[in-house]
Design a protein around this nucleic acid. Structure first.
Lengths: 150, 150
DNA sequence: AGCACTTGCATAGCAAGCTATACAAGATTA
DNA sequence: TAATCTTGTATAGCTTGCTATGCAAGTGCT
């Protein structure tokens, strides 16, 4: 029974994800950011005051992972967590001015990482790749929310 | 300046890699395996007695990461490390009988994860995706050995 | 032989993912 | 109202990635 890593989607996607993450880490390090905070920052830059639960749902990250990421972000002066006065369990997440100020440079960094890491593909191939990945990521999530059971 | 995570290759590839990894973890847990050992196992199943350095080069993993992964694999009875008698610095990695016996089931698990995670794509789209990822992963490595600049 | 340089691996320490579990605040219900 | 269930976060402990650093074993030079 043969199995070639060069043909395995799982193997390739892991390797590819590491390439992107290394590139991003390198580029946002000067900003004092790390890759793990990026998804949360993207959401919060769109509009903060979200709860942890909202972030978890939007990013498909485990709650415990998000709690830790937010703790690091707070430690590093990127967010503040404020108790919701209506519901004492809820912590709403607010960006600091500092985090707000990093937005443009961070997004420019992400753009350039995307461009460089995909430089071996033509523009059309890049669009194809993105479209295929979207199908997997979003269809997969949909099928994880069954209509009948649960 | 807009930036949509749904269109960002870096964001998508990270998300997709987590989907594959979760699927694989679930399926190989009954075998006592974890996803991080998989690349090394694939190489060693092809032929063991490799050095740590050889694994590092073939898998594009940092040396320290590989050292830790191999230590866990040894702890879990998957490999043995034996000093090379020609060169006292080198540790050659040998699979245990137990690890050898896991091969078929593990590869079957990987195959089924690949199939299920990509189930929202047609067979042709799956081939396309793999081809595009190969271009990025292997061209990228090539271009990291520049001929002229940098 | 003795010195510095290189090479192969290990260790420390951190980020970011996961599961399992704890716990306090709300909601429900007998 | 009191007991129980649910919900939102936090914490513990693990894996897997990374950088930086240490160190012992080879290699080369003089």
């Amino acid at each position: 029974m043969k199995f070639s890593k060069e043909l395995s989607a799982g193997y390739l996607v892991n390797h590819m994800a590491r390439l992107f993450e290394r590139g991003l880490a390198e580029r946002i390090r000067p900003l004092g950011l790390t890759p793990g905070t990026f998804p949360a920052l993207l959401e919060l830059w769109e509009g903060d005051g979200l709860t942890q639960k909202e972030l978890v749902e939007r990013l498909d990250i485990e709650q415990a992972t998000m709690a830790n990421t937010l703790a690091r972000m707070e430690r590093d002066g990127l967010v503040r967590r404020q108790k919701d006065e209506a519901d004492g369990r809820v912590q709403r997440i607010w960006l600091t001015d500092h985090a707000r100020g990093l937005r443009d440079a961070a997004i420019e960094a992400a753009r350039s990482v995307n461009a460089e890491t995909m430089a071996s593909l033509s523009a059309q191939e890049q669009r194809q790749l993105v479209a295929l990945m979207q199908k997997i990521v979003y269809d997969d999530k949909a099928s994880a929310t069954p209509t009948s059971s649960e």
